[in-house]
Design a binder for these strands. Sequence first.
DNA 1: ATAAATAAAGACAATTTTATCTTTATTTAT
DNA 2: ATAAATAAAGATAAAATTGTCTTTATTTAT
Lengths: 155, 155
Amino acid sequence: MFSKTAEYALRATIYIAQKSSEDNKLGIEEIAKSIDAPRSFTAKILQLLTKDNEVISSVRGPNGGFYITEKAKGLSIRTILETIKEDDVFTKCVLGLKACSEAQPCPMHFQYKPIKQQLIRLFETKTIRDLAKELKTGERFLANFRPRKKTRVTK
Amino acid sequence: MFSKTAEYALRATIYIAQKSSEDNKLGIEEIAKSIDAPRSFTAKILQLLTKDNEVISSVRGPNGGFYITEKAKGLSIRTILETIKEDDVFTKCVLGLKACSEAQPCPMHFQYKPIKQQLIRLFETKTIRDLAKELKTGERFLANFRPRKKTRVTK
DNA sequence: ATAAATAAAGACAATTTTATCTTTATTTAT
DNA sequence: ATAAATAAAGATAAAATTGTCTTTATTTAT
Ligand code: FES
Ligand code: FES
């Protein structure tokens, strides 16, 4: 569905939203590890999202790092995707026609359309804050669980 | 949503299903042109689908070409996607976790799940024949329409 | 002022996807 | 049998995506 860039962007944003605040900024090291993504690549992606501090905010120097404002937490998932130019799902045809339109529909169009609308609705209505809250329940994951060989039993 | 490979595979298959028969086989040239895809790349993709004549059938030599049997027209879109190993949409997590599972759901999982199920249902129930029929109505497209500069008006 | 900590920027590299070109094998018609 | 037409196979190349490394700029603490 999404590129690696988009996946890391979403996971990182949700992680930052859940864990950070203006006076508890997170370093790239911690973020990348927590979402199980390559460090430098994640840094590059965050650079896109920190442009003008629009989605994610950052400051350099000691005690610097990434955080996200309460205001930005109200942004939709769609906003994140658009910021990183991953908006295919909103515009493209499922069979790859340049545009998805009723004027020149592909053979799947009318069956796909209602599903696409739900996807759009989902990404438009869900905010960063919503997803961070889900994560906070502790029963949601942003990285692959590494199962232990055995359950450690202490005597 | 899908790779170029998948898009071309689907468009080509639908085109072949609508236009060909066992005694009216189609050449790669015509197919590629009709679906607006690169010729040699399309040929490569058709090689995947003609493996064992499972989805698409082919014969070489004069009057050779590609066609699809009535039986194969009953195959689902999912079968095409699986044949070319494009089955992410059926298995992967929307945020990129290795697996989409209730055991370790991502923060979008429970919202995305019902939509995903509709996608799966769509690709599983729609057959090649269904889509070929849609195309036959003449009001569906497999290539981008090239608009004319002006509407030609004959006196 | 200086040093240290941090993200930003930029250059580079590896991998995957997309695309093309050439050669080979198969089939048909003559 | 031969030639022609076609897809299959294989080699290569271009482009895009993913990933890494090095240098620079900024901020803070001393
Ligand atoms: S035209 Fe293909 S999905 Fe709308
Ligand atoms: S776990 Fe992410 S969509 Fe199911």
